[in-house]
Amino acid sequence: MTGLEDAALLAVVAIGSAFGASALAQASWPRRSPAAAILLWQALGLAAGLASVGTLLGLALPDSTIGLVRSVLHVGTMLRAGGLFRVRDGFGAVGAMPIIVVGMRLACLAAGLALLASLCWVLVAASASALAARRRQRALLTLLAHGDPKVPGALVVDYPTAAAYCLPGLHSQIVVSVGTLELLGRGELAAVLAHERAHLRERHDLVLLPFTALRRAFPKSVTCTDAYSAVALLIEMLADDRALRARPARELVSALVRFGTASPCPAPAGTLSAGQGDVAARVTRLLQPVRPLPPAVVLAICLAAALLVTVPITVLFV
């Protein structure tokens, strides 16, 4: 396939992924099988990113017949050899090429490489920020937190409002406020711990990281914000499901409701309140359990996700 055909195919993938993301964000089946939905989200994100980069590269090298990545590497060689306007399968046949066409192709090449670089950069930056924030949290916890027999394996901080969270990583921790200990009963606390342990065990922070990075790269994009919120909620539902294996649903629901109706900590102006309706959605889902998707459907979704990612990878590298 020529570069132009590659670009067309990848443009379809990129635009299709964007539409797919909107559709998935509004669908109701994800809460039936959150894990499958999360996998599909990852595939959509990866496919959209690779396909966008690939479309721009394909437009920059429309006549190339080898893989896009290899063409880009050859461009480097051609530029160094000075044969920019004279090679047949690079920037045009022998003879004069209108400067505007050359300009546009160079612009597409620059844009494609810039997009690739910024996507890699935000991923690295998001990871670094997260690591730094966690290090600070751990240092503060060493000074301020203590254990409590009511929450074995977790740390307690003297904060009056109900709060519970987990600190992922190599030295993972579950942190619970004194307010939480006063608000919840023994079973409810156990349910909260089971939920947080599921987050830590299954490294949900890593699952969410690409979407944190995407939102950082495109803060004004509604699609990226919706994708982040959708995946964040699905992760919570997944942890809820795991917690149900250890504790009865009643305890988890009770804990969620008490948390949700406790008096909120004052939020500074300008902060986003993440996911309106998320807590209610989780409670409703736990009280009226929906049947999980049939295994055949889950398999189909996994295959679709794999296919979605394979197309841009093949076009780029083969």
Partner: peptide
């Protein structure tokens, strides 16, 4: 931890928020 500072870099998941 509860992402209340407007700087959402910590990426910590919390159990539930107040509504």
């Amino acid at each position: 931890a509860l992402e209340q500072t407007g700087d959402r870099t910590a990426a910590l998941t919390r159990f539930a928020q107040s509504v």
